[in-house]
Design a protein around this nucleic acid. Structure first.
Length: 755
RNA sequence: UGGGGUAUCGCCAAGCGGUAAGGCCUCGGUUUCUGGUGCCGAUAUUCGGGGGUUCGAAUCCCUCUACCCCAUCCA
């Protein structure tokens, strides 16, 4: 079980709900609409939903949210099922379909109508839009909302029977046409659709909307945690409304939202993906450049790598874009310990070894020493071989480790060679290298004493196999692509005549390989044949050499970061009303409050009333103001004044204890929390919990000594100049005294001790 | 513009009043018959800005700013 030390906020919620007994068992669901191919964003959702179920010994359903007959299709449900299975998860029971619940959903709708909470509206689509109002203006209710229950029942039934045309009527919830949340302005529950449903056939003429179907489907399946993406935050109110109004037998599910995944240099939107496929800019839904599950799969990504990636990016509520480098790390990291290393030459340059005659077979282990796997193959070797064109140059840049006229190089698993002559064609292009090998330098038996800077891959000319290699680059040239115009024209490069060592083709030791010094490759599951083997590049190896050379080609990137201090535009502050201004003046004047606290109090009717009430009891304007403006304000943000558990008088009592130093301000916060919860008197709380502060140095000193003795490292750090560690020591002392030590005294004493 | 969200390193992301976790990227060094891997090390005096409360603030309060979502008979 991958249970990282810090769990995400969803797992925190689940744990609390399990602990509190809200649910006996966690039950999640992955509920895609089968209207497109799943992409890596779905993988994140799958990893979250199935992962939580797995981690907390619960269950997870796979449900096709198929309420829109015009967009959905069986081929997508197959792709969805496939994706979940490929990622290694098993759904609870069989696949669920919202369409299976259509009868139940219909009954729930009837119930709502009978309760007078839903009505058939006969406005046109345009009218409905118009009546909805705007974000700043309230909407207005349709006159059809006045229809009787009987009429609504009759109409809805006839809608179901197919008596009306598309768009003639809709069923709406009767909520609030002036709700600030636009989604709550009498949301549509059902619409008429004379369409063939890929699964329900032609039986239905009304189809439920997402907002009605989803919450109830969750409820029907016994889902506990309904996890969806951020854009549904506004829909949560309807989710709760429907389930609450229907008086369902508890327990019921609750919705929680997380940020959807985005990755740079690619797109995740269904619309763009579809456009890419339909316009033939990619070869299909499984094009290896696509961020679809099918695409990654065909490219050669492993399910483990995708899952590890999902795990590494975390779950939060901030919209963010993950660097594709993080995904690439996940696949490299996975494949590094799994796949055999072989040699393949993508851009062959012929090398003739003039002093070598005959042929031999060399042993080559498939895995390097740091990979704990066994296996090896025979590598044929003879006079004529091919090396990578990049691995030879006559004008080596500084730091070049490969073959040059002056610099010998090792042929991996074979011999060291030295360049003797460079052959060119009429255009000056190098066509061949004449070389000599060092007989005593055979791999593993090297007695030559020659030091080389690197070992390069090669293939034997006589036995190498010709293969097709497809190199993929990012599909978009723009980091945050907006459309097809941002496409990278060079995202696919096909090499028809790469050469590979024969064992790869003949023995097929695996389907994924590391082509040494180049990257990870995957035998294409579709186009690979024995006649024309095809390999997809999954990802390149990290390449610090090309990075170095490219960096030096570019301008000497001198500029550190500009480190401009962020300038923030100050917005306009709403001016105070006359009465607020009067209060403000009074507070800063006779009460001697600082302007910030005075401002907070003066601008808030509830706060200032509370403050003045407390002030009538205790003449301690400043401390009182601080508590009210900071602590009480927090409580009053959510609640009405009369919903508070504590009174102004009690706050005054609390402040009195602070003023006479019975308790520290730290303890006062603790006491306040307690008061807000229980409404108990502060004195009683202090009494009951023994919170009176300890200011006597004789009592504090021994504790300080103990803390100092227990943290020699930090004492050293502090003495070395890390003064913020003072807070650490104070914190430790406070912790051992249960917060009761007088922090000011502790501060002084600790500072003294550590001097 | 009303409502709902979100801001912590180049990119993700912990953190819930007491020493700013971790991963990716980057940069050094080291090992290496892969310029891979591994190993070792560096990289936020500061948490969107400004104030306030506190002995002590990324965490509490006030305020400003930026970005995302909502006015489909889509989900």
């Amino acid at each position: 079980m991958i249970m990282s030390e810090h769990k995400d906020f969803l797992r925190t919620i689940v744990e609390e709900d399990l602990k509190s007994g809200k649910y006996q068992e966690v039950h999640t669901r992955f509920p895609p609409e089968p209207n497109g191919f799943p992409h890596i964003g779905h993988a994140k959702s799958i990893a979250i939903n199935f992962g939580i179920a797995r981690d907390y010994h619960g269950r997870c359903n796979l449900r096709m949210d198929d309420t829109n007959p015009t967009t959905e299709d069986t081929r997508y449900v197959e792709a969805l099922k496939d994706a979940v299975q490929w990622l290694g998860f098993e759904w609870d029971n069989s696949v669920r379909y919202t369409s299976d619940y259509f009868p139940k959903l219909y009954d729930y709708a009837v119930e709502l109508i009978k309760m007078g909470k839903a009505y058939v509206d006969s406005l046109t689509e345009e009218e409905i839009r118009e009546y909805r109002g705007t974000v700043t203006e309230p909407g207005r209710r349709s006159k059809y909302a006045e229809r009787s229950v009987e009429e609504n029942l009759d109409l809805f039934e006839r809608m179901k029977k197919g008596e009306f045309k598309d768009g003639e009527h809709v069923l709406r919830a009767k909520i609030d046409m002036s709700a600030a949340n636009m989604k709550m302005r009498d949301p549509l529950l059902y619409r008429i659709r004379h369409a063939h449903h890929y699964r329900a056939g032609d039986e239905w003429h009304v189809y439920p909307m997402y907002d009605f179907a989803h919450c109830l489907s969750d409820y029907i399946e016994g889902i506990t945690h309904s996890i969806c993406t951020l854009e549904f935050e506004n829909n949560r109110d309807i989710y709760d409304w429907v389930l609450d109004e229907l008086n369902l037998t508890p327990p019921r599910p609750y919705q929680h939202e997380f940020a959807r995944l985005s990755i740079n240099y690619t797109v995740m939107s269904k619309r763009l993906l579809l456009e890419l496929v339909n316009k033939g800019r990619v070869s299909g839904w499984d094009d290896p450049r696509l961020p679809t599950i099918a695409g990654y799969r065909r490219r050669g990504y492993t399910p483990e790598s995708i899952l590890n990636f999902c795990d590494s990016i975390g779950v939060a509520k901030a919209n963010s874009t993950v660097d594709v480098a993080q995904l690439e790390f996940a696949i490299r990291n996975d494949l590094n310990t799994k796949v055999p290393r072989v040699m393949c030459v993508l851009d062959p340059l012929k090398v003739t070894i003039e002093n070598y005659e005959g042929a031999e077979e060399l042993d080559g282990p498939y895995y390097p020493d740091d990979v704990p796997k066994e296996g090896s193959r025979k590598i044929p070797f003879s006079k004529e071989i091919y090396i990578e064109r990049d691995d030879f140059t006559e004008n080596p840049p500084k730091g070049y480790y490969r073959l040059t006229p002056e610099q010998p190089v090792r042929l991996r698993h074979a011999y060291i060679i030295t360049c003797k002559e460079v052959i060119r064609d009429a255009d000056g292009k190098i066509t061949e290298i004449k070389a000599e090998y060092h007989p005593g330098s055979k791999s593993g038996l090297d007695t030559s004493g020659i030091k080389v800077k690197s070992a390069i891959q090669w293939v034997d000319a006589a036995t190498a196999k010709r293969v097709e290699v497809r190199l993929y680059d990012r599909l978009f040239k723009d980091e945050a692509p907006e459309g097809l115009e941002d496409i990278n024209p060079d995202s696919l490069k096909v090499i028809k005549d790469a050469l590979i060592e024969p064992a790869v083709i003949a023995d097929k030791p695996d389907e994924r390989f590391q082509f040494e010094r180049q990257g990870y490759f995957y035998a294409d599951p579709v186009d690979y044949t024995d006649e024309v083997p095809v390999f997809n590049k999954i990802v390149g190896l990290k390449d610090s050499w090309s990075k170095k050379t490219k960096a030096s080609e570019k301008a000497p990137r001198s500029e550190r970061k500009p480190q401009v201090k962020k300038v923030q535009v100050e917005g306009e502050v709403t001016p105070m009303s006359e009465s607020e201004q009067a209060r403000f003046d009074r507070y800063t004047g006779e009460r001697k409050l600082n302007s910030e606290v005075a401002n907070t109090l003066a601008r808030d009717e509830k706060l200032s009333a509370f403050y003045e009430e407390a002030l009538a009891v205790l003449e301690s304007p400043v401390t009182l103001a601080n508590i009210v403006a900071n602590e009480v304000a927090r409580e009053l943000k959510e609640k009405q004044a009369d919903a508070l558990k504590f009174t102004a008088k009690q706050i005054a009592e609390l402040v009195k204890m602070i003023d006479d130093e019975t308790i520290s301000s730290k303890i006062a916060k603790q006491v306040f929390e307690e008061m807000a919860q229980t409404g108990e008197n502060p004195a009683e709380i202090v009494e009951a919990k023994g919170l009176v502060q300890i200011s006597d140095p004789a009592l504090i000193l021994p504790i300080i000594d103990e803390v100092i003795a227990n943290n020699p490292d930090n004492v050293a750090k502090f003495k070395a100049g890390n003064t913020k560690l003072l807070g650490f020591f104070v914190g430790q002392v406070l912790k051992t005294t249960g917060g009761k030590a007088n922090p000011q005294v502790v501060n002084e004493l600790v500072a003294e001790k550590l001097k």
